[in-house]
Simulated assay, not measured.
Amino acid sequence: MAFLKTLFQRLVELFERHAGLMAVFGFVSGVASYWLVERRESYAQMIALLMLSSWVWLVLENWLRAGILRRFGFDLPPALLRYATQMVQQESLFFVLPFFLVVTSWDHGQAVFTVLLLLCALISVIDPLYYKHLAPRRSLFIIFHTLSLFAVLLVALPLILHLTTRQSLALALLMALLFSLPSLGKLLRSDVWWRRPLLILMLVALAGGLWQGRRWVPPATLRLVEISLSQQIDPEERTAGARLDRIDAVSLHRDGLYALTAVAAPRGLQEQIHHIWLHRGVEVDRITLDIAGGRKEGYRAWTHKRNFPADSVGRWQVQVVTDSGQLIGLTRFTVGEGPARLPVPPPPEEAPADEAPTEEAPADEMQPTVPESVEPLPAPVPGEVQPTDKNDN
């Protein structure tokens, strides 16, 4: 026991003397973990399990400390536990940050969540901020701790269990709140009868609020590799034709519009996504697609929308969202009034007076041929969405 006590004491002195090195280690190990996951998908589950196991240790910290004290009569130094907690948070935040930075739509509310994670990562490596301004404020530290765990779970659960984004989001939210329950309990007095009902009410309120704000949480393990709008699709090459960001209303109603997306996802993931068509900020149609993970270039799928409202002029958006409503990416296009008008030819020059005028053809010879029987095309059903033409991987 004396040897262990001396070892722990030296570790504490080492951390105190080289606090900056610990911050560098947390940053490097976190980014290296992300790089390994991206380069070798076979490492993904192992790294995700290591991240989660470190958090399990933090959650069980109080019980482990009490058990070691009761069994061996040795109390772990509080300073060592503080440094271990900080290092786990650093590694976790710098591991998940690249996932969120890559998938965040910066002109969307998702930017708030990702910037908040970025601030947490910076605070975790700046000791004066972490120990003097964050750690002493118990309520702020609990929020910081829970947010870090929530972000790790959003990344780790799809990699380990191949859950969909909806399942991962719900389970990560539930686990983060349950693991924060011991810390929340310390904020309330233990000698009052209403302590436990208030804790349950706080958890329900937090879960409901966070679930309502799920649209602001980027889907960390789904990345939009490509999105394009076109009026042609090459099914063999799985590529779109000429990309459009502006189209006239006549062509739009005549030929419709293809929306092609390539979404990268973890290997083995089966996910349902939606192409949402919005006109002037109002949802017009929602077309559902099933995708599968495992391709670095992304799972390529497209939809063909043929029916548009009569008044389709203006700004449009095509949003790619998960089944839980989280935005993966979007593109915009504009519908104009009509096709560009051809230039008006100049009037023909008048013939000189001494020349005889050209004789015109008889009127009956200039009449166009009209088919005897032409059946009009059926009018499109308002709001009808044509089914997906093709989904390929």
Rank of each mutant, 00 (worst) to 15 (best):
residue 33 S to I: 06
residue 10 R to V: 10
residue 21 L to T: 10
residue 329 G to Y: 03
residue 320 V to S: 01
residue 369 T to I: 08
residue 358 T to E: 14
residue 85 T to I: 11
residue 319 Q to H: 00
residue 337 E to R: 14
residue 298 G to P: 02
residue 385 V to Y: 01
residue 387 P to W: 05
residue 87 M to N: 10
residue 386 Q to T: 04
residue 264 A to K: 11
residue 216 W to M: 12
residue 210 L to F: 15
residue 296 K to W: 08
residue 338 G to W: 06
residue 291 I to K: 02
residue 244 L to W: 00
residue 32 A to Y: 06
residue 30 G to S: 09
residue 194 W to H: 07
residue 366 M to I: 06
residue 32 A to R: 08
residue 99 F to H: 08
residue 247 I to W: 00
residue 138 R to C: 10
residue 170 A to P: 04
residue 305 K to Q: 01
residue 261 T to A: 04
residue 82 R to W: 07
residue 249 A to L: 08
residue 201 L to P: 10
residue 254 R to M: 05
residue 2 A to V: 15
residue 358 T to N: 09
residue 159 L to P: 05
residue 210 L to W: 11
residue 213 G to C: 05
residue 187 L to S: 13
residue 165 T to M: 07
residue 153 L to N: 08
residue 270 Q to E: 05
residue 287 I to W: 02
residue 253 H to L: 07
residue 71 R to L: 15
residue 173 L to H: 09
residue 291 I to V: 09
residue 192 V to G: 10
residue 330 L to S: 02
residue 306 R to M: 01
residue 288 T to Y: 02
residue 271 E to F: 03
residue 22 M to L: 14
residue 239 T to F: 04
residue 300 R to I: 01
residue 202 M to V: 14
residue 53 S to A: 15
residue 285 D to R: 02
residue 89 Q to E: 15
residue 151 A to E: 11
residue 230 S to I: 00
residue 287 I to A: 04
residue 143 I to T: 13
residue 63 W to V: 12
residue 81 L to S: 10
residue 46 M to K: 08
residue 115 V to E: 07
residue 95 F to W: 15
residue 393 N to M: 05
residue 324 S to A: 12
residue 165 T to D: 14
residue 165 T to S: 11
residue 227 I to C: 00
residue 217 V to H: 03
residue 163 L to V: 13
residue 41 E to P: 04
residue 213 G to I: 03
residue 388 T to N: 02
residue 304 H to P: 02
residue 171 L to N: 09
residue 254 R to Y: 03
residue 294 G to S: 07
residue 92 S to G: 15
residue 280 R to P: 01
residue 163 L to M: 15
residue 157 L to P: 11
residue 204 V to M: 15
residue 236 E to S: 04
residue 359 E to M: 09
residue 308 F to R: 04
residue 174 L to E: 12
residue 85 T to L: 13
residue 222 L to H: 03
residue 194 W to E: 09
residue 41 E to Y: 11
residue 168 S to Q: 13
residue 365 E to H: 04
residue 193 W to N: 03
residue 224 L to M: 08
residue 108 H to M: 03
residue 346 P to H: 07
residue 123 I to D: 05
residue 288 T to I: 02
residue 272 Q to F: 01
residue 167 Q to C: 08
residue 351 A to E: 12
residue 300 R to F: 01
residue 314 G to C: 03
residue 123 I to P: 07
residue 295 R to W: 07
residue 288 T to M: 04
residue 216 W to R: 04
residue 247 I to E: 00
residue 244 L to A: 02
residue 105 S to H: 02
residue 354 D to H: 15
residue 17 R to A: 10
residue 133 H to Q: 15
residue 328 I to E: 00
residue 102 V to E: 12
residue 332 R to W: 03
residue 78 P to V: 10
residue 356 A to P: 09
residue 146 T to C: 14
residue 352 P to D: 11
residue 229 L to M: 02
residue 176 A to E: 13
residue 59 V to F: 14
residue 316 W to T: 00
residue 344 V to P: 06
residue 35 W to Y: 10
residue 113 F to G: 11
residue 199 L to P: 10
residue 197 P to M: 09
residue 387 P to T: 06
residue 6 T to F: 13
residue 331 T to Q: 00
residue 370 V to T: 13
residue 373 S to F: 06
residue 112 V to L: 14
residue 382 P to I: 06
